[in-house]
Design a protein around this nucleic acid. Structure first.
Length: 476
DNA sequence: ATGTGC
């Protein structure tokens, strides 16, 4: 990273002043070490985002930021529709509404002694994982429409999970304003057989143990104690979201000149929020959010069924479910004024603070659970949102460890088998259909997740609550 | 991320 362009403001804030076509400054919220490890391309992408029409306050990068498609991954940017603001398909990302949900199992570490291996094999047998994997469900045209409108609420109605789950999901499990008519037939076709599947890449289902608590009061409110076993599911909207991203990116590139939008990078393709194209994309993207929420809801039921085979009578309850690839219409205070903004979070987690009316009653005191997936074999974290007065980055935080290198570089350095054996030696069981996928996801291919959450904590984005250590990981 | 690729 070229520090010469950055102005340091405190230990974890770096400002890229607005120059040239930038309308607002860029702000990186990370430690010096994390910034030093970031590619210069991140700076270039932040500057490009800062030049988009209608952007408000600043283009932000979270501590885990790295360069992505158009926008950096770990990027946050908000736009005002009344000020010519835009929505960008690249600013949401291809895996629309990719996110994490964490479930309490009601079990302690000691309960797993002797059952871990069986549970690993059972979860791997029950959870469809890998590229092109299909689920046990085939959606009819009507079923597809209902799923895209209803999200996790639809899934509960179909028998996956309980109504009580819904209060612990962002948007109560259903994004409003979804428009299945704005989703291409091809996107729907790709999704027809893929409900209740994990996918590939960095997606996983992980059995974890609470290894350390940092904030007793918040941990209490979240129902977490040391040695508790939890399950975390990381996945998104599969082929449907990917196809929507592909479809609209192409359309936005073609429509940009007529909309008077000059693109410094075609990957930044966007459309005015006030345009028909912008509205159609929002409708399709919200349908993809519902697809991801329904998908994680189905996977939750498959997980419960697997647990019931090993631990009859076990009850898995939902701690929280939050996405990290979205564009959401939200109210934020900017310079003392309350404004409706369209907040793009790409590889960034919503992190609403204490008292926010959208949080379930039990979490109003602590703030929203912020679920941070680490890399395979390292730690994951649960943080509590701190957004409020003086908030930065529109109530957002980091989403994971963030890549330290390309997938190609990772496969050059490691072999899947060796990674699995090394982790097995440390008592961490990996189950995956893809040896190459495991190599790409080797722990050292990622940044140090502990350093990332420490930076998020220092920057005031979210407060550390718990560290989770992996026990079993089903990888896509 | 992805029926892994213009």
């Amino acid at each position: 990273m070229d520090f010469s362009k950055l102005q340091q403001r405190g230990s974890v804030e770096w400002r890229l002043p607005a120059t040239g076509r930038m309308r607002v400054p860029g702000v990186i919220l990370a430690s010096r070490d994390l910034v030093a490890a970031m590619d210069d391309k991140v700076l270039e992408q932040i500057a490009n985002v800062a030049g988009l029409p209608g952007i408000v306050a600043a283009a932000y990068a979270m501590p885990d930021a790295h360069w992505g498609y158009g926008f950096p991954i770990g990027g946050v940017a908000a736009f005002d529709a009344a000020d010519g603001g835009v929505v960008s398909a690249g600013g949401v990302g291809f895996d629309i509404s990719c996110g994490v949900r964490t479930l309490h199992t009601g079990l302690k570490r000691a309960d797993l002694e002797g059952a871990k291996l069986r549970l690993a094999d059972l979860l791997y047998a029950r959870i469809p994982a890998g590229l092109g994997s299909v689920g046990g469900l085939r959606l009819s045209a009507g079923g597809m429409e209902a799923m895209l409108m209803g999200g996790a609420r639809w899934a509960v109605g179909e028998g996956y999970g309980a109504i009580a789950d819904l209060t612990h999901i962002e948007d109560s499990g259903c994004a409003a304003g979804a428009d299945p008519g704005a989703v291409s037939d091809q996107a729907k076709r790709r999704q027809r057989d893929e409900m209740g599947t994990l996918g590939s890449g960095n997606h996983y289902l992980e059995l974890q143990v609470v290894a350390e608590l940092f904030d007793q009061a918040a941990a209490h409110d979240y129902g977490l104690a040391v040695d508790d076993v939890v399950v975390s599911i990381h996945c998104g909207s599969r082929g449907l979201g990917h196809q929507i991203g592909t479809d609209y990116l192409r359309e936005m590139v073609l429509a940009a000149p007529a909309a008077g939008i000059l693109l410094p990078d075609r990957e930044l393709a966007c459309a005015p929020l006030a345009s028909a194209l912008g509205r159609r994309y929002l409708g399709a993207m919200r349908a993809a959010i519902n697809c991801a929420l329904a998908n994680r809801q189905i996977l939750t039921q498959l997980t419960r069924d697997a647990f019931a085979e090993v631990f009859p009578g076990s009850a898995l309850t939902l701690l929280y479910d939050v996405s990290h690839n979205t564009c959401k219409e939200e109210t934020h205070r900017v310079d003392g004024l309350s404004r409706r903004l369209f907040v793009h979070r790409k590889g960034a987690t919503r992190a609403f603070g204490p008292g926010h009316p959208e949080l379930p009653a039990g979490y109003r005191r602590a703030g929203q659970p912020v679920l941070i997936g680490g890399s395979m074999g390292t730690a994951s974290y649960i943080l509590a949102g701190r957004a409020g007065e003086g908030e930065r980055a529109f109530g957002s935080a980091c989403h994971g460890a963030g890549w330290a290198m390309s997938r190609h570089e990772a496969t050059r350095r490691w072999q899947g088998r060796a990674v699995i054996d090394e982790l097995a030696g440390r008592g961490i069981l990996i189950r995956s259909p893809s040896s190459r996928g495991v190599a790409e996801e080797a722990p050292l291919a990622y940044k140090d997740v502990g350093a990332v959450v420490d930076a998020a904590n220092l920057a005031g984005l979210a407060v550390k609550v718990a560290r989770l250590a992996p026990l079993v990981c089903v990888k896509g």
